[in-house]
Design a protein around this nucleic acid. Sequence first.
DNA 1: ATAGGGTTAG
Length: 712
Amino acid sequence: MGVNAVSLLNRLLQNSTTTQRPKPLPANAKSITNTIFRYLKSHRLKEAVSVLFSSPTPVPPFIYARLFQICSSKLAIVEARKVESHLVTFYSTPPIFLLNRAIETYGKCGCLEDARELFEEMPRRDGGSWNAMITAYSQGGYAEKALSLFKCMNKSGVLANEITFASVLGSCAAVLALFLTRQVHGLVIKYGLCSNVILASSIVDVYGKCQVISEARKMFDEIPNPNSVSWNVIVRRYLEMGDGKEAVVMFFKMIGSNVMHLNFTFSNALIACSSISALKEGHQIHGVAVKIGFEADEVVTNSLIDMYVKCGVLEDAQRHFDQPESKNIISWTSLVSGYAMDGRTGQARALFNEMPERTVVSWNAMLAGYVRHLLWEEALDFVLWMRRMTKDIDHVTLSLILNICAGLSDVELGKQVHGFVYRHGFFSNLLVGNALLDMYGKCKHLDSSRIWFSEMCHLRDRVSWNALLTSYVQHELSEEAMRMFWDMQWETTPNKFTFGTLLAACANIFALDQGKQIHGYMIRKGCEIDIVVRGALVDMYSKCRCHEYAVKVFKEEAPRDLILWNSMILGCAHNGRGGEALDLFHSMEEGVRADHVTFQGILLACIGEGYVDLGKQYFNSMSNKYCIIPRLEHYECMIELFGRYGYIDDLENFVQSMPFEPTEQMLIKVFDACREHKHLRLGEWAEKHLNELNPITPYRFEVLSRPSLVTL
DNA sequence: ATAGGGTTAG
C-alpha cells in the first residue's frame, strides 16, 4: 500500500479535531454510490474502483467494506491499495473496522507487509485489528509471527476472543507449539469458551499433531456436541499416529452419533482399515457409504477401491472398479499399483496400457512394481519409454530409478542420475538423497556414499544414517559401523533398522558383548523387535557361538517366517547341533515352505552329524519334491559330505554327473579326499582338472606322502 | 465483519 497514504492519514489526523462522520452526500455523490454499487453487484471491480476515485468525498462505509470483500476474493491487491488510499484520504478518521477489513484484504492477498504497515500506523486499534493481523500472519503461513503478535496483544492488555484463539491455535498446530497450546487451552477454559466447538476441535487438532494423542482424546471427549469437523480431526489424528484401530473405532462412533458425515472422514477411516488390513471393517464402511448415498462420491469410491487393493483383495477392487462410474485416474492408478505390487506385473501393465490418461503417480506405480520384484531390465525399459512419453518426472521416479541402478550395480547410470538430480534441484529432497546413498552403497562406492552423506548434512535423517551404516556393514567395515553409531546419536535416534544393522555388524566381528548390550537396550527402550530384528538376533547369537540365547529368541511367542527359520537352522548347523537343525526343519515344514537356504542348513547339518545317506536323500528331494534347483553351495556341501566320510564312489559319481564343470574349490576338496582315502583314479582325475586350471604351479597326486593342501 | 478439519493413487 502507499506509504504516502499512511503519511497522509497521519497528517489528516493531526489536523482533524472534530469531524467524525462524513458530511451528507451531495446529489452527484449519491449517484456515484449507486454506480459503484451497480458495478459491485456485477462484480466489475476495476470499474467500481475507478468510479470511486471520481468522488472527492467519502462514500458510505458499507461500500468500502464490500469493495474490500471483493478485492479479497479476487486477490486484487492493486485495487485493494486504491480503496484503502481513498478511504484514508477522504475520511478524516476512517472507521477502525474498515481499516481492519483492509488488513484482512492485504493478508488474503499475501501482502503481509502492507498489512503490518497499516496495522502499525493505525492511530487507534481495536481487538478486531489485532485479530485481523494475527489471522493474516496465521493464514499466510507465518505462524511464528502470528504467535509473537499474540504475545504482544496480551502484553498490551487487549483481551483475546474466540477469533484470536482460533487463529493462534492454527499457528500452534503449524509449528507444534505444545507448551503455548497448553497455556492457550488454559485461557480458553478461563474465559469459559470450552463449549465453542471450533476452539475445542482446534485444541484436539494441535494435541494430535503434537503427538499427545491421549490429551487430544481427552479434549475430544469433553466436547459436548462434536461436529463433523471434530470427528474428522480425531479420526485423522489416530490414523496419523499409526493407531488405525482406534481411528476405525472412532469412525463407527461417529456413525452412531447424529452428525453429518464428511466424505473425507470416510476416506480417512478407509485408509485406517488399509493400515491394519481390516477388511471386515472396510466392508462395513462400504455398506454405510452405500446406505447414506456416498457411493457416487468420487473421494469415497476411490478410497474404497484403494482399501480393497491394500487389503489384498484385488478381485473385489477390480469388481468395484468395473462399475461404470468408478473409473477415474486415481482408482485406475490404485488398481495398477495393486497388481504391480502383488507381483502380477503383466496384468498391471495391461491395465496401465489401457489408461486413457496418466499422471506421474500412475507411471511411478507401475515402475515401483517392477522395482519391488527386482525386474531390473523391465524397469529400465519402462523408464526409457516413460521418458519418451512424458516430461513428467518427480522425486519418487528418481528414487525408483536409483533403486534400479543399485539393483543392476550400475554406478555409471547412477552417476548420470545424480547429475540429473543435481541439475533439476532434487538434491534437497530427502527421499532422493537417501536413494542416492543407498545406490552408492550397493554399487560398492563407499567413498561416494560418504561424501554424499556429508554433503546432505543439513537434511539427512535416520534413514540416511541407516543407509550408510548398512553399506559399512556390507563392506565388512563393522567396527567403523559400530563407531558411527555413536556419532549418529548426536543427530538422531536409532530405530529397529539401525539395530538390525548393528546386530549384523556384531555378528560379523563376533562382538557378543556389544550384541547383548544392543539386545538389552532395545528391550529397555521398548523398541519394536520385529521378525527381521529377531532374525538378526538369532544370527548374531549363533555366529557368536551363544546358541542358548539364539534358541531363546527363536522360541519367543511371535510369528516366524522362512528367513527366521533359516537363521535358526543355519545357526544350529554351524554350532554343531545338526540333529537339532533337522528337527527344526521338520517342525518348519508344517507351515513354511523350505528354500535353497534351508537346504544349505540341512546339508551342513548332515555334514556335521555324518548323515551321508540322509544328506543324499535331502539333496535329491530338492529337485524331486521341492522344485528347488540346487546351487553351487549345495554341490559343495555334497562334495564335502561324501569326501569327509570317505564315500569316494558316491563322490566320483556325483562330481562326474554335475551339470557344470567343477570349480577349483571343489576339485581341491576331491583331491584332498582322494589322498586321505587313497583313491587313485578319482585323485588323478582331480589332478588333471586342477592342472588345466592352474598350469603354472601344478598339483601332483601322490597317494602317500604329501600333506593336505587344505588345512582345516 | 473476523475462526477449525480433510485433498483419496506411487
